[in-house]
Design a protein around this nucleic acid. Structure first.
Lengths: 195, 195
DNA sequence: ACATATCTAGAACGTTGTTCTATAGAAAGG
DNA sequence: CCTTTCTATAGAACAACGTTCTAGATATGT
């Protein structure tokens, strides 16, 4: 085995880690496995990411960035429809990338993201807040700040998706249940918007 | 160190595991640590629970049972108020027992609950379904089966609580945000009830 | 009291994350 | 191109972990 050029080590490791994550889930990510898959020495994980935790944090951040891009790709005839479509896209992301989603929300204690990592990851929340703000310029929605309203919506989205990915959704039609919940929440928020 | 009587081994291990879980979280639960804390030999975990996984599964099931008891303890002047109060109790449980909640929802892949374990754990869902059914006999609420409606409510509850426990709630007042979301969802469900 | 069940201590193994060392090869700069 | 610096690599080693196994001592049940 030759020596990987410096400039390729980090990206090689990230690609390998993403592949293992996608195929086998977060638990399958080990330093040796990722390094072998990337064709680099295990020490590369320490040299480049300071250890397994750093590698996981990079995946964590990338996961949120990808989630944000997915939500941002939503379309609709007006801001309210776009907000709703973004919520649907949120779920689509989770369903398309269940292992990523699990890493992002079930591994935070292990990852112990740095403050910078948290900022980078949760900059993605601003996407949702922006969607809420745009919708609210069209129609009253909930009470409190845009952040408050966005948080409530996120809660519902995240909850539905998490249970679904855990296989503990007992609803007959998960698609319909998700949309029913989302529409009920949005309708309720509209009805209860401050006067 | 003496020899623990047979009849005390299992409960001793469970108590120790609960204590470590409560004080240090799921990651701190190791076979040797639990055994030492319980004053029994590590092999006891294998003899009694078939290994670490079985021990975690026992904690998992107990967690759901305790959650169910908490929800069942809710009171109110009528069934709708009791449903709502049960939702508030749900959150109270999670906040009072964050590490239990994490074990229950972030460790399922590690635990790989047996089918019996799943049945036992999610018998607790019937509590929520029952509360929904009782409330719906008073007032229309959502469309679809009681199970469907309960699942949607559970999604929102779980989502809010999970994000809160992860420390990624950006709302100013988590209590208020939780209640606002819950009330909006219930109101929306009522407004969108069939017939 | 006797036979059976089971708790215990201890050993051992593979795996994992991590740290360290020394060498060889890449990268950067003149 | 040459020299110096950087860094990827192989390999060793360690502690910790979950797990399996053995043998002896003690508890349990009849």
């Amino acid at each position: 085995m030759g020596r990987t050029p410096s400039r390729d080590v980090e990206e090689g490791l990230l690609r390998a880690a993403e592949q293992i994550l996608t195929e086998e889930g977060p638990e399958a990510i080990t330093v040796r496995k990722v390094a072998t898959c990337a064709g680099v020495a295990p020490m590369g994980v320490y040299n480049r990411f300071e250890g397994k935790q750093g590698l996981l944090e990079a995946l964590f951040i990338r996961g949120f960035q990808q989630l944000q891009a997915m939500v941002a790709s939503a379309n609709g005839p007006d801001a309210v429809a776009r907000l709703r479509a973004g919520c649907v896209k949120y779920r689509e992301f989770a369903i398309a990338h269940p292992e990523h989603y699990r890493l992002m929300f079930e591994r935070m204690h292990e990852i112990e993201p740095t403050e910078r990592g948290m900022l980078e990851a949760f900059a993605s929340f601003d996407q949702l807040v922006g969607n809420v703000a745009a919708a609210r310029s069209l129609r009253p929605l909930g009470a409190g700040s845009d952040v408050d309203v966005a948080q409530q919506i996120w809660s519902a989205l995240h909850g539905a998706v998490s249970l679904e990915l855990l296989g503990i959704g007992f609803a007959e039609d998960p698609d319909a249940a998700f949309e029913a919940m989302l529409d009920a929440l949005l309708a309720g928020m509209e009805a209860r918007a401050e006067g």
